[in-house]
Design a protein around this nucleic acid. Structure first.
Length: 352
DNA sequence: AAGACTCGCAACCGCATACAT
DNA sequence: CATGTATGCGGTTGCGAGTCT
């Protein structure tokens, strides 16, 4: 088994790096910067191959590495991105500042994969989008304090505006929308949160109020626990503002994220949106692309939200709505093919 | 106490791609 | 265009520490 061309010419040390070697490499990089790795060992006085030096620097010695255990927020990002990208560790790591592909890969293989398997989740079926992102609002429960509400349920809770490009889960003041925040790493740890007036914006107009499944892409407000990550340490600043336009970024967003925050809108990074706020109960809303299906009828209204993050997934989700050509089945809904990440159903409940 | 086993992590290997000549 | 070299990436290995028996 031959070594890399930079390694097989002379005797090179292998195995774990000593503190002395680390110091030599750090001193060299700090003085001369990163240039041609194949020259580094010679110039830094190391008996290593350039490839080994590069790896040591990137995975261990770089000053901007975060190190330490992964946060729940980071874990969630990895889980979501792995659904989309698969084992593209370098691409996943790019979304996690201070983390390396090696670190993400090790974390996935040693921890996340097992946890997900234990939860019976299957990430291998590429024909299905299986949203395992679990710090998403799920099992939303609409609690109506009044059984004799003058409102029709459909009117109260679901405003799926015809020919408009958003639908909202709206509620009058006396109605509380609540949901669980499910943490994938802590089994059964459900944090109940309120999120009235969650708005789901679609990119294409919703077509009708007909008692049928309407499909649209949308932006799903995602709820994260307030302590999910230090990233959200400024959440109070954001959420103390009155929820207005869900897509209106708070005034101080520049100071929080820099002037390039518009790029965040595209989806690389989560955006905190002040669209979910309820009397001192703060949540973090992260803009996510998703596919929503809404179903309305005289006595029933439901909305299922399916996660997708790239065009291909979106197309697959649309295609999956159609029954297989050989199938005689007359009905095929998105729910038969996909697992909703959030499901809203009406429930009359006196308890607030 | 000691060997077997498991787990997490750092490092290596081979391949693919980018780039220079 | 062909070839050689450097770099980046993902899969895999192997070591050391901790746990189990």
């Amino acid at each position: 088994m031959g070594h890399h061309t930079c390694c097989n010419k002379e005797k090179v040390k292998r195995g774990l790096w000593s503190p002395d070697e680390d110091e030599k490499l750090v001193n060299y990089i700090n003085t001369y910067g990163q240039s041609c790795w194949s020259n580094v060992p010679k110039l830094a006085g190391l008996q290593r191959c350039g490839k080994s030096c590069r790896l040591r620097w990137i995975n261990y010695l770089r000053p901007d590495l975060k190190r330490g255990s992964f946060s729940i927020y980071e874990a969630n990002i990895i889980i979501q991105l792995h659904e989309i990208l698969g084992n593209k560790w370098a691409q996943i790591a790019r979304h996690l500042p201070g983390r390396t592909d090696n670190e993400v890969k090790n974390f996935w293989n040693s921890s996340l994969k097992k946890k997900l398997l234990n939860q019976g989740r299957n990430n291998n079926n590429k024909n299905h989008i299986t949203p395992t992102s679990s710090i998403l609002p799920s099992n939303l429960l609409i609690q109506n304090p009044s059984n004799t509400s003058s409102h029709d349920n459909n009117d109260i809770f679901y405003s799926f505006t015809q020919n408009s490009n958003f639908c909202s889960i709206s509620s009058p003041p006396e109605v509380t929308l609540q949901g669980f925040v499910v943490n994938p790493l802590d089994d059964g740890d459900h944090q109940m949160m309120n999120f009235n007036n969650a708005n789901i914006f679609s990119e294409i107009p919703c077509s009708s109020f007909e008692p049928t499944w309407a499909t649209t892409s949308c932006y799903l407000p995602q709820i994260l626990p307030p302590d999910a990550n230090d990233l959200y340490q400024d959440q109070e600043v954001l959420f103390n503002e009155s929820p207005k336009d869900p897509f209106m970024l708070p005034n101080n967003v520049d100071s929080l994220y820099g002037a390039d925050h518009q790029d965040l809108m595209t989806m690389d990074r989560p955006i905190i949106m002040p669209n979910i706020c309820n009397e001192g109960i703060y949540g973090n809303a992260v803009q996510e692309e998703a596919v929503a299906t809404a179903r309305f009828s005289s006595n029933e209204a439901s909305l299922s939200i399916f996660h997708f993050s790239d065009q291909m997934s979106y197309l697959e989700s649309i295609l999956s709505l159609f029954p297989p050509a050989s199938s005689s089945s007359s009905s095929s809904t998105m729910e038969e093919h996909l697992s909703p990440v959030a499901k809203v159903s009406i429930c009359n409940n006196n308890k607030l």
